Amino acid sequence: MQYYEDIEIGDTQECGEYTVTKEEILEFAEQYDPQPFHTDEEAAAESAFGELVASGWHTASICMRLLVDGSIRDQASMGARGVDELRWKRPVRPGDTLSVRTEVVDKRVSESDPKRGYVDSRLEGINQNDEVVISWIGLGMVERRNPDA
């Protein structure tokens, strides 16, 4: 288990790989983001994207799953305080394969709860062409191994 004390500013990690299908783009969009360029191939062809693209929220969800499976699962995570600087940089299309890379950009002990440390990490979702499709800074909370030290 990785605790707050085990994490250093500058630590990097790469997580997983996931190929996005047209069917799941349509399914997610129908339920959560039913804009025409996410739900209708003909309408999407006439949009600024020129073809069907995944909702940015779908892309964020895929990256979150890769992050949990890749690093949070083995961390003494206590959740998150939120995200900053969320950006959708490129559309995700059917057949794109996504992976995640992270870098710890800040850490500090909570002033209100010494059992908890704050770890801020930049996440980038990357497609098969090594292009960043999404990024954010996750404001994580990680349990301290020795809060009295």
Rank of each mutant, 00 (worst) to 15 (best):
G82Q: 06
D6K: 11
E143G: 14
Q75N: 11
E8R: 13
E41V: 13
S55H: 04
T59K: 01
E27T: 14
L66N: 00
E124D: 12
A44N: 05
K89G: 03
A60Q: 07
V105E: 02
L86V: 15
R87S: 05
G125R: 05
W57T: 04
Q128N: 11
P36V: 13
R87V: 03
E103W: 05
E111I: 11
P36C: 10
G138T: 14
T12S: 03
R65D: 08
R73E: 15
L98G: 01
F49G: 06
V92I: 13
E131P: 01
G79C: 05
S47A: 04
A54K: 02
V68T: 09
C63N: 15
E46P: 07
E5H: 06
E27R: 15
L123G: 03
E51V: 13
K107P: 09
A48K: 15
V119E: 02
D106Y: 14
V132I: 13
D130S: 14
E131G: 01
W88K: 10
L52C: 14
S110V: 06
E85D: 12
E23C: 13
Y32F: 06
V53I: 15
M141W: 08
F37C: 00
G125E: 03
T12K: 12
E103P: 00
T12P: 00
A45I: 08
V104P: 00
D33C: 09
R81D: 10
P147L: 13
Q75C: 15
V105G: 06
K22L: 03
L123Q: 03
Q13V: 13
P114G: 15
P94R: 01
E5F: 08
V53L: 04
C15K: 06
D6Y: 09
V132L: 13
P147D: 04
R93H: 10
P94L: 02
L139Y: 03
V132M: 10
I137Y: 00
W57A: 11
V68W: 09
A48G: 07
D113Q: 11
I25F: 04
N146D: 15
Y32N: 10
K115M: 06
S135V: 11
T19W: 11
L52P: 03
G70E: 04
V68G: 04
V53E: 04
A54S: 11
I137H: 03
P34S: 14
G95K: 06
E8V: 12
G125C: 07
G140T: 08
D69G: 05
W57S: 05
D40E: 07
K115S: 09
G82D: 11
S61E: 07
D11P: 01
S112F: 07
W136K: 11
F28H: 02
S110D: 06
V100K: 00
A48S: 13
V104M: 06
M141T: 08
E30G: 12
G125V: 04
V92E: 02
G95V: 04
L66M: 11
E30W: 10
V92P: 00
Q13H: 15
S135N: 10
S47M: 00
C15I: 08
E85Y: 05
R90F: 10
W57H: 14
Y4C: 00
V53Q: 03
D96L: 02
C63E: 07
A43L: 13
T19I: 07
D6R: 09
I9C: 07
I137C: 00
F49P: 01
A149I: 14
S71R: 14
R81G: 09
W88V: 08
T39P: 07
P36E: 13
I134D: 00
I72C: 06
